Each structure stands twice: as structure tokens, then as C-alpha cells.
Computed example of a mutant assay.
Amino acid sequence: MIKIMVVDDHAVVRSGLNLLLHGKHDMEVVGEAADGDEAIRLAGELNPDVVLMDLSMPHGKDGLTAAAELKQKQPDTAVLILTMHDDEEYLFRAIQAGASGYILKSAPHEELLAAIQSVAEGNAYLYPSATKRLMGEYLERLKQGENTGPFDTLSEREKEVLALVAKGYSNKEIADQLIISVKTVETHKSNVMEKLKLKTRPELVKFALKKGLLNFE
């Protein structure tokens, strides 16, 4: 019996997953959580085999932060990211956080059940187009070899945020311009600073200037 915990801030999603999994002879939902903090606490009490984790939860820890913390505390628990975000940045960060799988909420029920089974057995699971994307990124990095510098490790979105931060835009202005949330902007900024090994805004501006990112056309 695979013990599953469902983590999503939408009650209707949790109910739908419960209905889907109810009656499966080899699967059982042992708990639900509405945010990352609750997920970490309950996982410690219930010790599930698989945690179905949403990414975007407005209250408490988000899915990626919760996944990373949960894997540190319970390395034998598999985290399967179940999200609407078909985005390579989220995909790569989920893998870095220790997630065993990444699947879209739009996936057929049979695919979700197969993904749960796969990660419960200790395997990794990515939906088909994500696998292709991941392999493409890996092969591209191999091709670049030693010529890859810190700037080349940034995603296109991170480069956009880097340029706008260096130009003096506020988080809110960047969020409005890129049509993303302020929280996502803050996450991208943090990733940029970490990848480029920068500590202050002046260092970031200097780096952007060297890379020719400060044209104001």
C-alpha cells in the first residue's frame, strides 16, 4: 500500500485527488495539507511514501521550499510535484530541491497514477516533453563545455530580471512588466545573486554593465 499525502492550497483540488485515489487497492491518502509548513509537519507525523506537492501556495512555504526541507528531514519520502506550471525554470528548481518527479495537473489520470507508482518505487518521473527539454538542456551544456560561465547558467527569465533590477526597476514594476508575481521576481533575484556570486546591488549593476544589459531603448 502506497501512503500518499496531498498538498495543495485549493480544497477542491485536494478533494478531486482524494476521489481519484480512493478505492485504488494499492494506494491510500493518509493526509492533506494546504501549505508547505503544514506539509512538513504532517509528513513528520504520518511518514507518507509519496507527497503530491503543488508549487504555488500563497500562505506559508511554497512547494519548492517545502520539498527541499522535507527531503532533508525525510530522505526516503518521495516528492512528486503536481503543478500547472509547464516551465523549465520550475522544472530544474524542483529537481534541485530533491523532487523525484514533476507532472502537470492537466495530465491524464492514468499518467498521474503511473507517476505515483514510479516515484514510490524509487524511480524518477518527468512528463514526456519535460524529459525532452531536460535532455536538450543537458546536451547544450555538454556542448558548451568549459566555456560556460556563471552568466550562461542563468535562465532567460533570470537574465530579464537581472537587466530590469540593474536598471533600477522595483520588484512591483518588474512583476507588472513580465506578468509574474512579486514573489516570483524576488525568487529570480535571489537565484541570480547566488549563481553570479554577488552580494550587493552595486555589484549586480556593474556585472550587468559589463554584459551590455543596460541599454535603455
Rank of each mutant, 00 (worst) to 15 (best):
K211W: 11
E89Q: 06
A124R: 11
L80E: 06
S129G: 03
A130Y: 05
L213Q: 04
G145C: 07
A34P: 00
D62Y: 07
L64Y: 07
Q96L: 11
A120I: 02
G63V: 09
A163Q: 07
G31T: 04
A66I: 09
V51T: 03
E217Q: 14
K159L: 07
V7E: 05
L198N: 01
F207N: 00
V161N: 01
E217N: 14
V6Q: 04
A68V: 10
S170P: 03
S181V: 08
V12R: 13
K199R: 12
A11G: 11
L196Y: 05
R141T: 03
R141G: 09
Q96M: 08
V51I: 09
G136A: 03
P108R: 06
A107M: 09
T187Y: 12
R157D: 01
I40C: 07
R201S: 09
K195N: 11
E110D: 15
L196Q: 03
T65H: 06
L204C: 02
K210D: 13
S170G: 07
G44I: 10
L164N: 06
R157Q: 05
I4E: 01
Q96S: 15
A97F: 13
V165N: 00
L213N: 02
I116M: 05
G98C: 10
I95Q: 08
V79D: 00
D49W: 10
E194N: 14
K199Q: 14
G122L: 10
T83G: 03
D54N: 04
L178H: 09
F92E: 06
V51W: 12
L17I: 10
H188R: 13
A130T: 05
I174Y: 02
